[in-house]
């Protein structure tokens, strides 16, 4: 057993393993790329599963969560007494802080005609806590719900909220249609 043969044997072994490795990695990559389901995705909330636990507001990796409330006006009852806007048992039906449910005052209330009021989410103020969503789902039409806002979301490989979501309400949707909106014909860009 000479030194040279020893080394060349090692070299041969290494070359073989290298070949197997290249084939393996290439094959794995090729298989995954060639698969039909391969496509870019975005995280989104299934509003029907959401229980408004409040973790969206705190568990996003961003300083202010990418999850915010959206409002399908077409489904809204324009109630004077909006259970998404007002505290339970409001003292007065006005925008005083003592009557508002939203902790950041992110819902604007606008009189349209008696007895209808329009409610708009002020996106910059919304932190995605879901308090209004709970109110709207429990007693209203469910026209307010939480969605991941994709101009803010950085599409983490594993969404930190999805991991902790107690209702397992997070889905990965195709990047071409990254919202799961309520109401017919909604979803303009």
């Amino acid at each position: 057993m000479s030194k040279e043969s020893d080394l060349s044997r090692r070299e041969l072994l290494k070359t073989t393993i290298r070949g197997i490795g290249l084939l393996g990695f290439g094959g794995t990559g090729g298989y995954l790329v060639g698969r039909e389901s391969q496509s870019e995705t975005r995280w989104q909330i299934d509003a029907d599963k959401c229980i408004q636990c409040g973790r969206c507001a705190t568990d996003c990796v961003l300083e202010v969560s990418a999850v915010k409330c959206v409002h399908t006006h077409g489904m809204c009852g324009y109630c004077k007494l909006c259970t998404a806007y007002f505290e339970p048992e409001p003292v007065n039906l006005d925008e005083g802080a003592e009557n508002q449910l939203c902790p950041t005052g992110a819902i604007a209330r606008k009189f349209i005609e008696e007895p209808y009021y329009e409610y708009n989410i002020l996106r910059d103020l919304c932190v995605g806590c879901g308090k209004c969503v709970k109110g709207c789902n429990m007693f209203g039409n469910g026209s307010m719900y939480l969605q991941v806002n994709h101009d803010l979301c950085i599409n983490c490989n594993m969404c930190a909220i999805a991991v902790t979501c107690p209702a397992q309400a997070f889905r990965q949707l195709p990047a071409s249609s990254p919202y799961k909106l309520r109401g017919k014909g909604e979803g303009g860009k």
């Binding site: 507001a57 705190t58 003592e98 902790p103 932190v127 806590c129 308090k131």
Partner: peptide
């Protein structure tokens, strides 16, 4: 992360 202080605002609840 705990809870957002602004969402909790626990001092407000008893007053309300």
């Amino acid at each position: 992360n705990g809870k957002l202080r602004v969402v909790e605002a626990s001092g407000l609840l008893p007053l309300k």
